[in-house]
Design a protein around this nucleic acid. Structure first.
Length: 340
DNA sequence: AATAGCTACAACCGCATGCAT
DNA sequence: AATGCATGCGGTTGTAGCTAT
């Protein structure tokens, strides 16, 4: 609560000496007493009748946002926060509409909580709070790929197939770039239930069957060895999602130039490193810190859900869910021999 | 201990909307 | 249809309290 200033300060001289600024306990009590006796409404005449030197607007705001008896105080629960995030992804800054789904919470309170907590958390996790999609830019993508290349000691300018290794397919590069540019265009992403749906799907997955399932980015600790052995080395990537836009050569070139490859030659690339770089690389490394919140680790696993242990962890699964969606819907990983 | 910087949130402001006249 | 008033809404600001140095 904001402490009141001295009683006689902060009067609005151009508005009949009406007071502005923080409310005193005495003013609060006058307003409460009046409304308990006469009800609220007719805000213009209310302050005069209640003996308050305030404008009606100020009285209404004080009542609806603070003094109303049904106001719910205290920290937002995880469920409330998730509701806010989901509704915001559909409604945008329609705070009053969002507030209608959260009994006891005011639009002002939700708006403040969004701006001071949720928005910052999403940004920290690399999620655009406006579009609710990951906001990797081309430089960050380049950093991931370069980091992967360095981790595997690949020659930075090498091109083509590296036998018995996991090599960046130009299609993959295109796909990753296309993913970034298509995130805001996918209508499914706007579905308020999709996060839960995907969690449910994950729970139903058979973890041992890598052949047909989509791969997902989930919070985890390690990359299972069997993924390396069974899946990644003999993996064919293809566009399975027709909603992905085609991207031009200049965009691929842009990525490769960021890798320091003059003329855009393709570096060798380990897919497993790409994903594990999200999870295991310290924030001081070349991997994008924007995706690595301190409480969230994300790695390349197949179809497993995650168990969270703390509130922060629980909240960070939102980011994970976003990544899960984009990867699983954009990358359809099919077990085939012959990658390139 | 002092203080600069940061965070959280109550309150304000201007505009939009709905309704009565 | 035009006007004015009451109320609602969303963006922004001001400031108390907290934290780091």
């Amino acid at each position: 609560m904001v402490a009141a200033k001295s009683p006689n300060s902060n009067y609005d001289q151009k508005n009949n000496g009406l007071k502005k600024g923080p409310w005193t306990p005495e003013e609060d009590q006058k307003l409460i007493d009046y409304i308990q006796k006469h009800g609220y409404g007719k805000w213009r005449t209310l302050p005069k009748n209640a003996g308050l030197k305030r404008c009606g607007k100020s009285c209404r705001l004080r009542w609806t946002n603070y003094l109303r008896p049904d106001i719910k105080r205290g920290k937002f629960s995880f469920e409330e926060e998730e509701t806010i995030i989901q509704l915001h992804s559909i409604l945008g800054n329609k705070w009053s509409t969002i507030a209608a789904s959260l009994p006891g919470r005011t639009d002002n309170e939700i708006k403040n909580y969004w701006n001071t907590h949720i928005k910052k958390r999403l940004m920290k996790m690399g999620i655009d709070p406006v579009t609710h999609t990951p906001c990797l830019d081309i430089q960050q993508l380049s950093s991931i790929i370069l980091n992967s290349s360095q981790l595997n000691n690949y020659p930075p300018n090498s091109i083509g197939i590296m036998p018995n290794t996991n090599i960046l397919n130009p299609t993959l590069l295109s796909l990753l770039t296309a993913l970034l540019s298509s995130q805001s265009q996918n209508p499914d992403f706007q579905n308020p239930n999709f996060h839960h749906n995907h969690l449910d799907d994950s729970n139903n997955n058979n973890n041992n069957n890598y052949s047909t399932q989509n791969f997902q980015l989930l919070p985890s600790q390690e990359v299972p060895n069997n993924i390396q052995e069974n899946q990644i080395q003999n993996t064919h990537f293809s566009f399975q999602n027709s909603s992905l836009p085609n991207i031009g050569d200049d965009q691929c070139m842009s990525v490769m130039e960021n890798l320091g490859n003059e003329g855009g030659s393709m570096p060798n690339f380990d897919l497993r490193s790409l994903f594990s770089s999200y999870s295991t690389t310290p924030s001081s490394s070349a991997s994008p810190s924007t995706l690595n919140s301190s409480a969230s680790s994300t790695t390349f696993v197949n179809g497993t859900n995650t168990t969270t242990t703390s509130t922060e962890d629980e909240r960070d699964t939102y980011c994970s869910n976003v990544m899960m969606y984009n990867i699983s819907n954009g990358l359809n990983v099919i077990n085939e021999s012959g990658f390139l």
